[in-house]
Design a protein around this nucleic acid. Structure first.
Lengths: 124, 124
DNA sequence: TCTTTAAATGCAACTATGTCGCAATAAATG
DNA sequence: CATTTATTGCGACATAGTTGCATTTAAAGA
């Protein structure tokens, strides 16, 4: 399953790079007219499989994708919160990290912390 | 909009009471045969509007509902984590609380923290 | 108890998000 | 240029959740 360097996946990567926030499928669709829905989903899921992006599930039930910036090859940490604005629907990273001390017997595989509310821009 | 005490809403409440975990729409459906899908959604959303239940969105994108136990009339706190088992799909409350110190200008309205992995039961 | 009225319900239709199978296309390698 | 196989487009599908509307029914009053 070697990955290929296609125009579509490059463009999706560029969008992820230039966006500060986590990006929804919808937002990528809007910027890539002519590319099929399923294709974009597949590209994003491939990135996620490869550990290139984090997948965040908002409290709206939708998926958001963000480039892994501070994650190296060895560690893939994602124990920080995201903030989703209920007005503009932007999803941004918050600095706040959290240590996952699980109760005895539980195995933590994924952390998904989303705080929603009104962001700075929409508030002012 | 005065609420009425119907057989359906009573039964949903009982299910929520006897369950330790947070309950999905699906699980309630299974225990209330003959009641319409939409009705159950409406009951749960009404409970949520009234502040009777917390609504948790799992990293599977689905909604889970849990009775507010430690929430009084005045305060409605929900700053604790939930754990979703990817095998048995149970969603339980974790004790871990978190304080929401938001960056300047951000207004936090809702907290949704879900850790997923394998639970004690499924692990052993 | 009967009547009224508005909340709750059942049903069907609808929206939206995300996935999958399959044939066609195109990137990488020799 | 030829071969191989990852990727794409298309259509169909699955599932979660919502909504409009006619009907039912809980609750309050006569």
């Amino acid at each position: 399953m070697k990955r290929r360097n296609t125009k579509n996946s490059q463009e999706v990567l560029e969008i992820l790079q230039k966006e500060e926030a986590a990006v929804s499928h919808e937002k990528i669709m809007a910027q890539l007219e002519g590319v099929d829905r399923a294709t974009i989903y597949r590209i994003l899921n491939r990135f996620h499989e490869d550990g290139k992006v984090h997948k965040i599930v908002g409290d709206d039930g939708k998926q958001y994708f963000a480039l892994c910036l501070n994650c190296g090859e060895s560690k893939h940490v994602h124990n920080h919160f995201h903030f989703r604005c209920v007005q503009c629907n932007e999803v941004v990273c918050l600095d706040k990290e959290i240590s996952l001390q699980m109760p005895e017997g539980y195995i933590a595989e994924n952390f998904n912390g989303v705080i929603s509310g009104v962001c700075k821009k929409c508030n002012s």
